[in-house]
Amino acid sequence: MRGLRGLRGSRGRQGLRSLAVSGLAGLSALAGAGAAWAGDPSAGLAYHGSAMLAGGQVDVWLTPRNDGPAAVPDASVRLRWSAALADVQQLPAGCARTEERAVVCRTGALAAHGLGEQIALSVRLEGRPPEVTMEVETAWTGGAAEPGKTHEAERVLVLATGDPYAF
């Protein structure tokens, strides 16, 4: 993501929005591929991990889990913070900034009653807030229904102590 520095200097936020839109297009392509999945699947997605805030940077480690009963061909998780993200971010492959305060990451396929691969990312916040609230929620389930789920985001308060806060 070193190219973001050039976008920021030459086109400002408009360049960043273009980059975010292209990232969303890639995630939409993933969504389109999953929509063709046949059957009447149901899944129960959850995310467990920790977040740590120090010096205006939030480090997040999370593992997606599918409580089943059906496998999920692909899914994505949305992470949203109460503070704005800095303009320049270095996100891992499979993650894209989608809003001023949010990032979406691909989880990959999730077996029924199985764990996915750990997702690890660091985001820079504007300034150095003493605390931030992070919301974690399923953004897309690859066509699998989640019966009984209200799709409310899980929230965790992360203080700028450098300590990990579990969710």
Results as ranks from 00 to 15, higher is better:
Pro73Ile: 06
Leu4Trp: 12
Arg8Ser: 10
Ala153Lys: 01
Pro164Ser: 07
Ser122Glu: 13
Glu137Arg: 02
Gly44Thr: 10
Ser22Leu: 15
Cys105His: 01
Pro130Asn: 03
Ala33Thr: 14
Ser18Gly: 12
Val136His: 00
Ala83Cys: 07
Leu121Ser: 11
His151Gly: 10
Gly116Gln: 04
Val72Asp: 01
Leu159Asn: 07
Val72Ile: 11
Gly142Glu: 01
Val88Ala: 08
Gly142Met: 01
Gly108Met: 01
Ala84Lys: 13
Asp87Gln: 06
Arg124Ile: 01
Ala70Arg: 04
Arg17Phe: 13
Pro147Ser: 03
Gly23Trp: 05
Ala153Gln: 08
Thr63Met: 13
Ser22Thr: 08
Gln89Phe: 04
Trp140Thr: 02
Gly15Lys: 12
Leu7Arg: 12
Pro64Leu: 03
Asp87Arg: 06
Ser76Ala: 14
Pro129Thr: 02
Pro41Asp: 04
Leu16Cys: 08
Ser42Thr: 15
Thr63Asn: 08
Pro129Arg: 06
Leu62Phe: 11
Arg97Met: 02
Ala84Gly: 08
Arg17Pro: 00
Ala70His: 11
Leu53Ile: 10
Asp163Thr: 00
Gly23Asp: 07
Ser50Ile: 07
Thr98Val: 15
Ala86Pro: 03
Thr138Ala: 12
Leu16Met: 13
Gly143Glu: 00
Leu85Asn: 09
Ser28Ala: 15
Glu99Met: 01
Val21Asp: 08
Ser122Thr: 14
Val158Met: 05
Ser10Leu: 14
Glu117Asp: 07
Ala96Thr: 10
Glu131Ile: 00
Pro147Tyr: 04
Ala96His: 14
Pro64Met: 03
Pro147Arg: 01
Ala166Pro: 05
Gly68Phe: 02
